[in-house]
Design a protein around this nucleic acid. Structure first.
Lengths: 111, 111
DNA sequence: GGTCTATATGTCGATACGCTAGGTATCGCT
DNA sequence: AGCGATACCTAGCGTATCGACATATAGACC
């Protein structure tokens, strides 16, 4: 129920994360920030959604993780898109386009 | 995992059902058929998803049910959109537009 | 030195949704 | 009599997201 806050990631989270990582290797916290920023605050990924999602994607071999220092000298886990992840991302993008087109078809129906 | 079949209703099912019923009162089985037809076979609502969704919407006061005869003389439960359901549908449409616009924003990012 | 905020990662339990797989019954066709 | 399509339903499973919590460090401010 969208009481109060109305953000719902309806299964698009994996797609969005993969896309952000495709822009360049990044760590979880920064991925969430970029997502929020690019989407003009529409997407606010909570930590309880973010980290399990990243682990899921890593387990499936779509992302690779490596501990590195950030610019501020702190440790963070940087994720990189694997070849498999790139393929999956491309497929998911097509999938999303088909889905949104199908929804648009239904919503446009007036008869 | 979308192996084999790739249909996924990711939380849009309520929206789609409300929209179909908004076209005119209808019963469950026919709603699923119209949805499949309008979406050019993209959406194939399984009965295990369909009926619980209808009950959910009825419980929330967004749909009203009434047993009536179909043209073929058989009983079927016809659903009608309530005033509350109409409001909810309108809000959900706006919500969907915002969501798909936000996803598009992310997917369009190239930098 | 102590406190606070932002950064950064993680887990746990609850909740909700869609799917698979079953079940019931009626109608029309062959 | 048998079959497929119509029409309704439930139970159990997997899984994704959320809310709340836990942990730790760096920098700023007093």
């Amino acid at each position: 129920m969208p009481e109060g806050k109305a953000e719902y990631l309806k299964g698009t989270l994996d797609l969005l994360i993969l896309k952000i990582v495709a822009l360049g290797p990044n760590h979880g916290y920064a991925i969430a920030q970029r997502l929020q920023q690019i989407s003009k605050d529409f997407f606010q990924v909570h930590q309880g959604s973010l980290y399990p999602a990243l682990h899921r994607l890593e387990d499936r071999g779509l992302l690779e993780a490596e501990w590195k220092d950030t610019e501020t000298g702190r440790d963070a886990k940087f994720y990189t898109l694997t070849r498999k992840g790139r393929k999956h991302l491309d497929a998911e993008v097509v999938n999303w386009e088909r889905l949104s087109e199908a929804v648009a078809l239904v919503l446009r129906t007036v008869e």
